[in-house]
Every structure is written in C-alpha cells, then in structure tokens.
C-alpha cells in the first residue's frame, strides 16, 4: 500500500490501534450529541440513519481518511462520498469536529440562506466532496473519483457510504459491475445495514438478501462486520486497503437510531427530528448533562 508520506499528511488520529479504541467511543458519543442537538434545532431532518452510521463515519474520519481541514481541496486527500445524503447531520457533525465547519453553524441546519443544506451541498459546505441526496448515485461517483485518482497516479483512496434501502436502486448495481470490471481497488464501499427504510423494514419493502452473495457475485471482496464494534471497523478498513485487484465493500450490521433507546430500530424516526422531550431523554441516555 503506497502511503503518501508527506509530512503534513494527516491521518486524523495519529495514534495506535489501542489508543484509537480508547478514544473512538467518546468521539462517537460526542458526535451523536451534536447530531441530536442539530436536528432538534432545525425541527426537521433524518435521525435514524445518522445515528446508525455514526460509529462507521467517526472511525473513518478519525483513523482512516487522510484529510486536511485547513485545506479541504488538498490534492492528496482521500475522498469520501455520502451516498445516503440524508445522513447529512452526521456528516456535518464530523466535519465540525475537524474544523471544516464552525460550531456556530450547526444551529443553522436546514435554515434559509445558511450553509448547512438539508442534504449535503458541495457548493455551500467546506469539506463536502460532492452534492448528494438523490439516492443510488454515490457509488458511480466514487468509482469515477477512484479512476481519476488512479489515472493521475495519485495514491489517495475513495470511500463511499450507502444505505441498505438505497441499494435497491439499479444504478448501484451498474456501478458494482463497473468497480469490479475496472478492478477499482482504491475504493472502499460501506453499507449501513440497519435493516430499515422509510416504508418499513428492508425485508418487507423490497428484500435485498442474499446481500453478501450478490456483491461477491459482482466481483467484490466482502467484509461483514458489526458496525458498532470499533475494533471490527478498524480491522475492516485495514483489510480493505490490503485487497488488490478488486473493490471492497464493508457490510456493517447496524441499528437504526443507535444510541438512543426511543429511536432504536424504529421506522418512524427515519425522517423525524427529536422534539424537546425526546432530546432531553436522548441526551440523558448519552450522558450529556445540560442542553
């Protein structure tokens, strides 16, 4: 694996695996708190799918992605595409943690003429690689980025996060073929397998199983993990970097609404922001003292 060992290259958390494992739970807890406060402020937005992917994205940004908040357009940065764009609050909380976004901005989520659009918009938010929100398009974009990086002999990698409802889109499977056909191994896809979409469970709305077999049949290296176990997430990212000649997908079993009992595994909280009471209860559960 050709790491660019530029002295300024920032693997976000320069620490050992043990240290990372010590710190990640606390970082993720803080991110969850920010997500919930942000959503409560805007009274609108996607709670469940932001919380289910928090541990994945926190780990990605803290330990894996080479990026520079002070220079978001840095050529050598690893790319990240939030294909399930409705998890924007999670993305914003993470970007804020690294200083791409000022903390004061978080309360402007979804408000008129403000920086934080309902779905990620690269024109208005620093650190957002590309605008998303219409599902099913991110894997193609990530393929294109990875191919472009390869052509430019840039050893940066590309990461993309998809939802399990999202992979019902046909375009995902066109992109799945492309990635294997062009042996795009500087790409790592993540699938937030929380089992729920808007109209119900993924199983009852439009079954996607056998999921791992599908990706394998499409020529991918598949890693199944528990998306809330940091050691498994770390190991998966490590393996993904080592796999050559084919793309890798991490299928992360998660809980929609993870971290707050009233939201966990509830279809209803896909696109509903916490009200006053729910926020209070949520913050209590997350061990956050005051509003």
């Amino acid at each position: 694996m050709a790491d660019s060992n530029d002295s300024k290259t920032c693997v976000s958390m320069e620490c050992s695996r043990e240290e990372a494992l010590q710190r990640l739970p606390e970082e993720a807890r803080q991110i969850r708190i920010e997500i919930l406060k942000m959503l409560h402020q805007s009274s609108s937005g996607h709670t469940g799918g932001s919380l289910s992917a928090t541990d994945l994205l926190t780990t990605l940004f803290f330990t894996e992605l080479r990026h520079r908040a002070e220079d978001p357009g840095w050529e050598g940065r690893d790319r990240f595409v939030l294909s399930k764009g409705h998890a924007a609050p999670l993305y914003y909380a993470v970007l804020c943690r690294f200083g791409y976004i000022h903390a004061d901005e978080l309360c402007s989520l979804r408000k008129v003429n403000c920086m934080l659009q309902g779905h990620p918009d690269s024109k208005s938010t620093p650190g957002v690689e590309i605008s998303t929100g219409s599902l099913g398009q991110g894997l193609s974009i990530a393929n294109g980025m990875a191919l472009g990086l390869r052509l430019n002999e840039n050893n940066a990698r590309t990461y993309v996060l998809m939802g399990d409802g999202e992979v019902q889109e046909g375009m995902i499977w066109e992109a799945a073929m492309t990635a294997a056909h062009y042996k795009i191994d500087n790409l790592c896809a993540m699938l937030d397998r929380n089992g729920l979409q808007i109209d119900g469970t993924v199983e009852e709305v439009m079954n996607i199983e056998p999921l791992a077999d599908k990706w394998k049949a499409f020529g991918w290296h598949v890693i199944n993990i528990d998306g809330h176990r940091f050691e498994q997430i770390l190991d998966a990212f490590k393996t993904a970097k080592e796999v050559k000649g084919k793309p890798t997908i991490i299928i992360a079993k998660t809980i929609k609404g993870k971290g707050v009992s009233i939201f966990e595994n509830k279809v209803k909280y896909h696109g509903i922001a916490p009200n006053d009471q729910e926020l209070e209860q949520a913050l209590k559960e997350l061990g956050h003292k005051k509003l």
């Binding site: 659009q117 309902g118 779905h119 918009d121 605008s131």
Partner: peptide, 8 residues
C-alpha cells in the same frame, strides 16, 4: 418542499 433543500 422546504427544508430538504435543492436536491429534493
């Protein structure tokens, strides 16, 4: 459509 923004 409102808060969802330009994509929607």
């Amino acid at each position: 459509v409102g808060e969802d923004g330009g994509s929607h």
